[in-house]
């Protein structure tokens, strides 16, 4: 190679080299222009297409695909009864409840960064949150009020489902799941009550768990409890508190139930609840009214 280069004329070699480079540069420029052009149409890029599988044109098919191919939206059907979209039938309470659960998860995770579930630290952490952490007070307030609001919206959701008879066939099972979710919501709120480790939470949980002493068979002050071998140190209240008084173990248990166990259980029940809403035929109405004369005879075995 080196010998070949030596034999050629120096000037001719140089022009060929420059020409080659220029050609390369022009090629690069064209590629760069292509890239710039593609920036003007980001929806045509491989990156975009790999994330969004369908174009968002205003065509019915694409609108439907936008729902069906999105993991967050696919709980929705592609189409829905035109009257069910109006606020007056559902009051939106189930959706608001779920949204509040998301808000609570988000604010709750942020609060966990500042909180130690120990008798020494817990109360000080709340003071720290309220006085030193940027927006800490707002964070705690939002978590508190979202929790209270969620109880109200759960009750209103149940109220609406009852008034519209939506628990009737074929949605009987989903109503049961809903009742369990209501219980879990109230338990979530109750376990959270103890965590600030102040007088309010301490006495509320003391009153609440004292009732567990009286559980029939399983509480040491309940009917047939002592006969069943229950004492203050092995009954159901002991299991709840991790001790015979509301103390550090109770704080830790409330924390674990509140932040991990109940949210997980509630998450599973929510998945079933939403799944069954769809599988039982979507939202229950507004359905066409039925008349008394149209009642069919019940099937007998």
């Amino acid at each position: 190679m080196a010998d070949d280069l030596k034999e050629q004329k120096p000037a001719g070699k140089a022009t060929a080299l420059i020409g080659g480079v220029l050609k390369e540069v022009k090629g690069l420029k064209d590629k760069a222009l292509d890239d710039v052009q593609s920036l003007k149409k980001p929806q045509k890029t491989q990156l975009y297409k790999s994330i969004f599988r369908v174009t968002h044109d205003e065509k019915p098919r694409n609108r439907a695909l936008g729902i069906l191919s999105n993991v967050f939206l696919h709980l929705h059907p592609a189409k829905i009864n035109r009257d069910a979209v109006a606020y007056n039938y559902t009051w939106g309470m189930g959706g608001i409840t779920f949204y509040l659960f998301i808000v609570l998860t988000f604010t709750g995770v942020l609060l966990m960064f500042y909180y130690h579930p120990t008798k020494v630290q817990a109360f000080r952490d709340i003071l720290y949150l309220e006085h030193d952490v940027p927006f800490g007070k707002l964070l705690r307030n939002m978590h508190r009020w979202a929790a209270h609001l969620m109880i109200i919206t759960v009750w209103l959701h149940m109220f609406r489902v009852f008034l519209t008879g939506s628990y009737k066939k074929p949605r009987e099972f989903n109503w049961m799941v809903g009742v369990i979710l209501m219980l879990l919501t109230m338990l979530l709120s109750f376990t959270g009550y103890l965590l600030p480790d102040d007088q309010l939470g301490f006495w509320a949980v003391t009153v609440g768990t004292n009732m567990a002493r009286a559980t029939p068979l399983l509480g040491h002050e309940g009917p047939l409890g002592p006969e069943f071998g229950m004492t203050a140190f092995n009954d159901v209240r002991f299991a709840l508190l991790g001790g015979s008084i509301v103390d550090s173990n109770a704080l830790l248990r409330a924390y674990i139930w509140h932040c991990i166990a109940i949210p997980l259980i509630a998450g599973i029940f929510m998945a079933v609840h939403f799944w069954r809403v769809r599988k039982d035929g979507g939202i229950s109405g507004p359905a066409p009214v039925m008349l008394e004369s149209e009642i069919k005879e019940p099937r007998r075995f």
Partner: peptide, 24 residues
């Protein structure tokens, strides 16, 4: 949340009973 602060009482004290001691 901006207008109303979540309550925070004194630190838990088993020897000082709240009266009335109310559940949520």
């Amino acid at each position: 949340s901006i207008t109303l602060d979540a309550p925070l009482e004194e630190p838990a004290n088993p020897s000082l009973t709240m009266n009335p001691a109310k559940a949520p």
